[in-house]
Design a protein around this nucleic acid. Structure first.
Length: 583
RNA sequence: GCCGCUUUAGUAUAGUGGUAAUACACAUCCAUGGUAAGGAUGAGCGGGCAGUUCAAUUCUGCCAAGCGGCACCA
């Protein structure tokens, strides 16, 4: 996918196109006032105040037409400079421009770009003439809060793209269409992975047999990895007394994001939004020696968060989900090695799945917004520094993001991009000095003194739900053999004549643990082959007269046009090896 | 939650102010077969609640769910 922001030429082109958009909007909506029109990764947008008017779908073609008209005039785009004071005077009737100008250094000059009857404040650069703006398309529109603050007025935002040639534009629009085909919501429906029901409730997924099988494989997989690394697994309740979240501080901070509280017999309960506090209580239930640390408590945990209705996105963001969660209770001197181990585990797991498009993000607090966070400044600075050093030392490339920390500590997040371009967190590692304090956790050190441990929160697959969403989009629903819900289908050429041998093959495959069935419906071979292919089943085994007589199978793999004949034993060996290797 | 849009059979779509169509899937029957759709017949549909109208799937309002963004994301 094209990155319009990083490509210098495209950036300039799109920036100029944003001005063209503004010019056209000014013609069609004389009352329009303009905020900003930047270039972003997916193209350009402009935020516009239309007074009481709004943009509707039908308006985009109208605006495009006007843009074409403006561009055809072939106006040169001219740069001029004025002083800050002159600018304030010139734009005194436009509160948005005044806001922008006032934030510039006094004494600096301000550049403006003019094309025909339209002038806008702008740093530039721009293309020479509007005639270069030919191959553009307005993609979508939406409301957007002024300055990104939900208390501010909603401006109208229009998104578009501009490319040098008509062919490139067409190809880009085709890419956008294709991305929709690997949207996990579409694949999930087509492949019967999960479903939603209005009657069950928004954001509450139901996992169908195929989907549950995939989840079961995933949780077995990750639990085995964890066991090998010294984790222990537990199960804790999804409904808890609200006392727990009063202690943890969640109730004060995050009540709005929780399902409503239940009250009975004078006690309050809630559906847990996360399970950290329960693991704290579990840790606290016995006395720990410094020799016992680290203690790594893990859980495949159902959690419930009342996500805003507009945030729900299939199983990528739902209100009920299952975390692959763990809390590592350790001594301060163990932090670095524990975080390194978790990072290694993440890299190891991504390798098993063949993921390559991800990036590590060091999520820091936003110092402008300090009241959002627990704990004192030094502690934050120390722990942020600690995480930064660990990543640097490991040679893992990462970027830093202010304001992305948890309220109790900084994080290392692993970010991926969904089919539709959403930046989402898959894995996370969080350093926490706060919850141990709040829950008064202790261990006995080598001098016999009770001291406070540190907690590392971590999720490798993140939530199984989101992980499956990403997995589907990355693989286009074509899962590797070891993960496929249905790994193989056996197709007897003539069901009546070859059923018995098909069953022999079935039992042999089941014996090595494969998820396989026989398709002995009274349909043509071609029909059954087609269905196996469209269901994205990795392996088709055709058995007929020849196979029956020589105890062999004819195997066709998903996506291949070739059918290969081999003995049943060779086939079983190959399958076992492939599943074992997680290829 | 905010701005805009959408909602027709199991699925994907078409169409209309006079209660609806196509394909696949499904059921029954015929066909009994070698790698992407054999044939016939049949059953099944307007998100919910109001309003306008002689008449609403079609127009209007409210609600819900979904979609694209915004905000949010422990």
């Amino acid at each position: 996918m094209i990155n319009f922001k990083e490509d210098e030429a495209l950036n300039t082109l799109n920036h100029s196109c944003a001005h063209l958009l503004a010019q056209a909007v000014r013609h069609l909506y004389p009352q329009a006032k303009f905020w900003v029109g930047p270039v972003v990764e997916e193209g350009f947008y402009y935020d516009i105040d239309l007074g009481d008017d709004v943009i509707r779908d039908d308006d985009l073609p109208r605006i495009e037409k006007e843009m074409k008209k403006c561009a055809k005039d072939n106006k040169r785009i001219v740069r001029t400079e004025i002083t800050r004071e002159e600018a304030l005077e010139q734009f005194k009737d436009d509160p948005y421009k005044v806001d922008l100008i006032e934030r510039m250094e006094p004494g600096t000059n301000i550049s403006m770009y003019t094309q025909g009857d339209f002038t806008d404040l702008c740093r530039g650069p721009h293309v020479e003439s509007t005639k270069l703006l030919k191959n553009f398309k307005l993609i979508k529109h939406s409301g957007a809060y002024w300055k990104g603050d939900e208390h501010n007025k909603v401006l109208q935002r229009i998104y578009g793209v501009c490319l040098p040639t008509a062919e490139e534009l067409e190809a880009h629009l085709k890419d956008l269409e294709d991305a929709k085909l690997r949207d996990h919501r579409k694949l999930g429906k087509d492949l019967s992975i999960f479903m939603f029901s209005e009657t069950i409730g928004a954001g509450l997924p139901m996992w169908l047999p195929n989907g549950f099988t995939i989840r079961r494989i995933l949780s077995d997989y990750i639990m085995d990895k964890e066991l090998a690394q010294g984790y222990v697994h537990v199960k804790t309740p999804v409904v808890v007394n609200t006392k727990l979240y009063k202690i943890s501080g969640h109730l004060a901070h995050y009540k709005e994001d929780m399902f409503p509280i239940m009250e009975r017999d004078g006690e309050e309960f809630c559906l847990r939004p996360m399970n950290c506090p329960e693991h704290m209580i579990m840790y606290r239930s016995t006395l720990h020696s410094y020799r016992d640390l680290p203690i790594r408590i893990a859980e495949i945990a159902d959690d419930f968060r009342f996500e805003a209705s507009g945030a729900l996105t299939g199983i990528e963001r739902s209100r009920a989900f299952v975390q692959n969660d763990s809390h590592i209770f350790c001594r301060p001197d163990q932090i670095a090695s524990e975080i390194k181990n978790v990072t290694k585990l993440i890299l190891d797991v991504y390798k098993d799945f063949g993921f390559e498009n991800y990036s590590f993000r060091l999520s820091l607090r936003d110092p402008q917004n300090a009241e959002k966070y627990f704990g004192n400044d030094e502690l934050w600075e120390t722990s942020e520094k600690q995480l930064r050093e660990i990543l640097t030392e490991m040679g893992v490339p990462f970027y830093e993001a202010l304001g992305e920390a948890a309220f109790y500590g900084p994080k290392i997040d692993v970010q991926v991009r969904s089919a539709l371009g959403h930046d989402v967190t898959l894995s996370t590692i969080q350093l926490d000095y706060q919850l141990p304090e709040r829950f008064e956790l202790e261990y006995v050190d080598h001098t016999g003194t009770k001291v406070r441990p540190v907690v590392i929160h971590r999720a490798i697959l993140g939530s199984l739900d989101r992980f499956v969403a990403f997995l589907l989009e990355e693989t286009k629903g074509i899962l590797p053999l070891w993960l496929a819900a249905k790994q193989a289908v056996i197709i007897p050429v003539a069901p009546d004549a070859h059923r018995e041998y098909a069953e022999t093959v079935l039992h042999a495959m089941k014996k090595i643990g494969m998820r396989v069935s026989i398709d002995d419906r009274n349909e043509k071979l071609g029909y059954r082959v087609r269905e196996a292919q469209t269901s994205k089943i990795p392996v088709e085994v055709v058995v007929g007269e020849g196979e029956m007589n020589e105890r062999s199978v004819t195997v066709r793999r998903y996506g291949s046009k070739e059918a290969v004949k081999m003995t049943l034993d060779e086939f079983l060996d190959a399958m076992m090896k492939e599943i074992e290797d997680r290829k």
